[in-house]
Amino acid sequence: MSKEWLQVKDLRKHFETPKGDLRAVAGVSLKVEKGDSFGLVGESGCGKSTLIRTVLRLLEPTSGEILFDGKDIAKLGKTHIRRLRKKMGLVFQSPHSSLNPRMTVYDTLARPLLIHGITKNKRDTTIEIVKLLKLMGLQAEHMIRYPHELSGGQKQRIAIARALAVNPEIVFLDEPTSALDVSVQTKILKLLDFAKQEKQLTYFYISHDINLIRVVSNKMGVMYLGKIVEIGDTGTVMANPLHPYSVGLFEAVPDPDPDKKLPELILKGEVPSPVNAPSGCVFHPRCPFAWEKCEREEPKLLKQSDQREVACHKYS
């Protein structure tokens, strides 16, 4: 197994707007190894969803490389992409809108199985669907239900089962629990973890919830205005974030400890628009440590140790 199993190199995705180019993904490089659970955190509008949609080729990349299993999928033609889809699954944030309300659970799950030729006849399809439902802690009887007859948690389990139906190698999970109540969140996370062991999957989580990423990932990245500012082992990054944005972001998370008082606020102001983003380091207008160089020169992701890379002039 090559170490660089999924590797994104200087990937860019720009959108044209009347006010200028919106650089949603502005040069992202990252690696995911087989068996990893990679977590990407960032606030809304930082480009995390656009990033995974571009990696999945649901959006056409503006430039850059996406190496998957040795091939550059940024340049693949349509027929090859379809084959690729079988290897990459995607679970969306809201199961309320990602499931077709007019399709039963059976139809929803049968579709990918038949399209990708995993099962050829009705009997095999049913057997496979029962297996998938079981994997997600549901019963065969759920097969004949429509989405409106299921709870939010059950719907999300169907959406996950659909992503797993084609035996993907990597599954992208876009805020898989943020539309759900806390009492069902744990169940989903545990089922995902179980499925990962069972099917030897690789996960790519994106979330705005830092504590969620802490729990589910072993590698993580912090994204701000289209760029990765810090990336590395989850334990290392969480225990001692280096980039001023990571520090501020982690500090802003409400701490469920009633004895702790509100800490000093580090992140002031608001995220600037990705159209005409700030020069140099995109974080410099909000950074308490910024100096003249930060305004001028864009910091590169530099290795700080074997466990982490940081894009900040303070550490270069």
């Binding site: 009492s183 069902v184 969140q185 744990t186 169940k187 996370l189 545990k190 973890d193 919830d209 504590n211 969620l212 802490r214 729990v215 589910v216 701490d255 469920p256 400890d257």
Partner: peptide, 13 residues
Amino acid sequence: LRADSTLDSLEEI
């Protein structure tokens, strides 16, 4: 989810 949560420490209802 807290700072010291693990998948095992989390309870489900």
